[in-house]
Design a protein around this nucleic acid. Structure first.
Lengths: 353, 353
DNA sequence: CTGAAAGCGCTTACAG
DNA sequence: CTGAAAGCGCTTACAG
């Protein structure tokens, strides 16, 4: 129990005495506030010894410029918005961690904005969010990032943004590409290397770019080794556990079952597990399975699931860095892209003779 | 591809012409800006027809006061901080959704601040976060919420906060109590109702208040029906999957296995699944299992896991509401508490004869 | 119930 | 390289 000041006291003031302001720094170091301002903003137009003297004082008194005052004068806040639409929790949290990695000690903060891209007014909602908060920039996470109308709106109102997507769909300076295609290809190659040829595929919704990329990468890699899947071995599902169950039921019902299944994400792979376990089909002896995401679920399932890992945290970090970076080095980052790779666990083995 | 203004254009201005300011509203409606300010702040000192006239104009031009200007004058921002320490992704995301439910259309935004409560400087990190951003208030999520030093620091600097915890540990106006004890008791009663008597318990770390509450609730409910667990049937683990595996191995090794296990969270229950499946112990025929959290994992496991559901999103909503509520009705909310309850799935049945 | 003045802590022109 | 003036869009005393 604490017995300090009343929580609803009308005026909340800093701990002891007011915090130092730019005026204090200017007065104490004997320069004008404009010079202090120049130092805050890293202007080159300050003599080195002036800068050193003032910076020492700032450190000494623990001075940090007020983001609201700065934002008011700049007509832009020091807030980065993260806009996303309904993906899995672990993915979002990792993305947030990554963004915060980039924002740490930068003076910027992360404000989250989940939305529903199926609701009609959602783009307007994002616009209000951006304009009312005068956001410095926003990160767009799949699947919202795939919505060109959203990106167009942001460009219209002059809001800088970065898009995270499985494939380049905007100027390089605004894109972080995750190359899902490569990850899926690696999964295909692994199954081939184990000797599988009767392989099935459960895809995410075709309308999702990520699903399209993963499917294409998987099928291409198979084709490169001369294997073409019949239509009956490819089932489109909805990226959800339940849809994975339905797809697996269709795939595992007949007598001639595939010896391996690749699913567009781990959720659907868990659905395959359920159907297989219920039907007494042994994983991996009678059925090999590979997922995509390397979510926590992958290691919690038994046997643990081989899955394609995405470097979500790094992806989020880079997307945020691109937003707060100064122009000079942003070019270096603009080509940012991260390749997924396969994490091998216990859900695959060569097919039975 | 879009071909709009360059993303790095030095001056980002609103879409078309500047947005309206308080001066525009004052001029156009023929009152002083102070009167407009009174209306913005819901002051009763405004004649109803004046208010109506001005509000109509504000709606018409889509005027929204600038949070940075307001914040600068108020010496406090319109940002709510969410401070948390390393819990599971779904829990955090649900908490964020709940907070945003409360903040929607309130003019407040949510800024996230994960931290590591084991690192020495973390309280200082939160203090800087609060003071530099002049946060309106912060929500403390377990286990950070259990740290009295953190709460004391916030009280010291005059920052309003709400704490979410399994049991009251602060003034009612600052607490949202989740009553984990009740949920655990319900799990115990369910197992008893099925006829189990040889029951085991895998607890979270005793240092966690939630673990303590869940353990106490479970054991109390058992004791109320005359059942006392021997020490050997109670294993302390770490709330993680891996620790659940180890605990289950200890519990399921001997010949006289318990017929049911209750775990302090779903992660550890998944660990029990792994050990049971590997050992050929059939769930629920030979072993009933109940988890806690009702995480997505619960329904993805097979057979699906009976688990105690926490109303995380509502909890987050209430914690945020308490922060932005005006004093008058905060009393009504202060007693806020939410009871967990058992979600019955397929992981339990009566013990074998 | 309403308003004119001063101020919140910064930055942007404009000078020098 | 440095500075005095005006302004960003609001609110707080203070009057009336």
């Amino acid at each position: 129990m604490t017995s300090r000041s009343k929580p609803d006291a009308p005026s909340a003031r800093p701990a002891m005495g007011k915090a130092a302001t730019i005026n204090d720094i200017a007065r104490l170091s004997g320069v004008s506030k404009k010079t202090v301002s120049r130092i805050i903003n890293n202007s080159p137009l300050v003599r080195k010894d002036t800068r050193d003297k003032v910076e020492a004082l700032m450190r000494e008194v623990g001075y940090v410029p007020d983001p609201m005052a700065r934002g008011l004068a700049f007509r832009r806040s020091f807030l980065i918005g993260m806009v996303y639409d309904n993906p899995t929790a672990q993915y979002i949290v990792n993305m947030q961690y990554g963004a915060l990695d980039a924002l740490r000690d930068s003076g910027f903060e992360l404000v989250v904005h989940p939305c529903d891209s199926r609701s009609p007014g959602y783009i307007d909602g994002v616009r209000r969010f951006v304009q009312q908060q005068k956001l410095h920039g926003v990160m767009l996470i799949p699947r919202a990032s795939e919505d060109q109308a959203l990106a167009d709106m942001l460009a219209d109102i002059g809001c800088r943004y970065t898009r995270i997507a499985s494939v380049a769909m905007d100027e390089p300076a605004r894109m972080v590409v995750t190359h899902d295609r490569n990850g899926a290809a690696e999964a295909a190659e692994y199954l081939l290397s184990l000797g599988h040829t009767d392989i099935a595929l459960i895809t995410g919704p075709n309308a999702y770019r990520s699903a399209h990329e993963r499917t294409a990468g998987f099928l291409e890699a198979l084709a490169a080794r001369g294997i073409e899947l019949p239509k009956s071995r490819i089932v489109e599902a909805g990226y959800t556990f339940e849809s994975g169950v339905l797809a697996a039921e269709a795939l595992l019902a007949g007598k001639r079952r595939p010896t391996a299944i690749f699913t567009g994400n781990d959720e659907m792979a868990a659905g395959v597990y359920k159907v297989a376990l219920r039907a007494g089909i042994s994983i991996p002896r009678q059925l090999s399975i590979i997922g995509f995401d390397d979510s926590p679920l992958a290691s919690r399932l038994w046997p643990s699931l081989t899955s394609v890992r995405r470097h979500t945290r790094d992806t989020g970090r880079i997307a945020a860095e691109m937003l707060i970076q100064h122009q000079d080095n942003s070019a270096a980052l603009s080509a940012a892209s991260i390749r997924p790779h396969l994490i091998i666990r216990d859900s695959c083995q060569p097919p039975e003779a």
